[in-house]
Amino acid sequence: MAIIIDQDTRVVVQGMTGNQGSFHTGQMVKYGTNVVAGTSPNKYGQDHDGIPVFASVREAVLERGANASIVFVPAAFAKDAAFEAIDAGCKVVVMIPEHIPVQDSILIVEYARFRGAKVVGPNTYGVISPGKAKMGIMPNHIYAPGPVGLVARSGTLSYEIAAALTQAGLGQSTAIGMGGDPVVGQVFNDILHQFEKDTETKACVLVGEIGGSAEEEAAEFIKTMTKPVVAYLAGRAAPPGKRMGHAGAIIERGRGTLESKRKALEAAGVTVVEMPWEVAPAVKKLLG
């Protein structure tokens, strides 16, 4: 088991023939992901590295049985692409692009709720179930199959922690990027619900950031979880009101501070560590 994607996921890549789409399709296939189709507004009707390219997701679903989409189209067209994938019946849509207008993201998330689809991101590095499949832009070699469910807002920071876990002999059931934007589909809460039910996952790692209150909301659910959770929160040195790259990472009006997150998580029984390199040892200790 794993969450969100596994070896049975049949992936369509929206925007497969572009620079990013093409490179990462290659990486996903190399990892063993079942990429069954791609779409392109201009290059449909041909094969791209042996994968058929269609004009629409609907065709990819009808002809190749695609059930999950990863989106590489430019931000201005991302809303349309997400709606297309959800409407065609994809139950998982991974949104890689950054700089998608926030009101577009709100509509994407509302439509996904309405149609019962899971949207990962936008502005995410994607999702990987090590040894089974990956839909994303993460490096292939830093993950290993195992018992840790990893969820982070941020890409590179998540790689840092995944690599440390792997090095410590702690593989991952699934690693997922929530996305750095203010409005994203799957939030900590949704993901932890799935890890709690997943039989392969024995412990969870949450990598949070200042801004918003997704961590505080997750804390409410963690109180009811049976599996242990370790958290690292980035941004203690960030001054209030400054935007730290991620549109999400901004402290405003006294909300979303590191302290409020830490308090909420600790009250829920989470082991909150101070520095990223303390995550793997903390998980090791909890798993015994």
């Binding site: 941020s154 890409g155 998540s158 203690r236 040195a237 730290m244 790259g245």
Partner: peptide, 23 residues
């Protein structure tokens, strides 16, 4: 590289008593 990583880097410097000049 990466916003989260950059924030964690500032945190790490502060952790050891340093003062970051930028993000």
């Amino acid at each position: 590289n990466g916003a989260g990583m950059a924030m964690a880097t500032l945190d790490a410097l502060q952790h050891f008593g340093g003062k970051p000049a930028n993000f």
